[in-house]
Amino acid sequence: MKRFLGILCFVVMISGCDDGDLILEDINFDDAPVATCDNNAIIYKLNEKEALLLELPEVVFPSETKTQEITIGGKIRVVYRFFNGTVKKENICETIPPVTPIVVDQWTANAGGKIVIKSTPIKSTDATNNSTKITGYNHYIVLKNITFQKTNGTQVYDEFIFGDYTTSVTSIPFAFTKTLGQCATTKQVYNFINSEALTLNAIEANLIKNEVTPLNAPRTALLGATTNSLIYSSYTGGILTENYFCTTTPPTTPTLFQEWKAANGVANTEGIIEVTTTTFGTGFKHTIVLKKVKMVRGSDDFYLGDNFIYGELITN
Rank of each mutant, 00 (worst) to 15 (best):
M1L: 04
R3V: 07
L5C: 06
I7L: 13
V12C: 12
D19Y: 04
G20Y: 05
L22Q: 12
L24V: 09
E25C: 02
I27W: 01
D31M: 05
P33G: 13
A35C: 15
T36H: 07
K45M: 08
L46N: 03
N47G: 03
E50G: 10
A51D: 06
L52A: 12
L53I: 11
E55S: 14
I70S: 14
T71I: 14
V79K: 10
F83A: 12
G85N: 04
G85H: 02
V87Q: 04
N91M: 01
I92Y: 09
P97G: 00
P98L: 06
V99S: 03
I102G: 13
K114E: 10
I115V: 12
I117R: 08
I117F: 09
T125G: 06
N129K: 15
K133F: 01
T135W: 11
G136N: 10
I141E: 07
I141S: 07
L143P: 01
K144Q: 12
F148K: 03
K150W: 02
T154Q: 13
Q155E: 05
Y157G: 09
D158R: 12
I161A: 14
G163M: 11
G163S: 11
T167K: 11
P173T: 10
K178F: 08
L180G: 07
Q182K: 15
T185G: 08
K187G: 05
Q188M: 14
V189F: 01
Y190L: 05
F192R: 10
F192N: 10
L200C: 10
N201W: 02
N206P: 00
V212T: 07
T213N: 08
L215C: 00
L215M: 00
N216A: 07
T220G: 11
L222T: 06
L223R: 03
L230T: 01
S233G: 08
S234Y: 04
S234W: 07
S234M: 09
T236P: 00
G238L: 06
N264Q: 15
V266I: 12
A267M: 05
E270C: 00
V275G: 03
T279L: 08
T282W: 03
T282Y: 08
I288Q: 03
V289E: 08
V296M: 12
V296Y: 07
S299V: 03
S299C: 00
D301M: 03
Y310H: 12
G311V: 09
E312A: 05
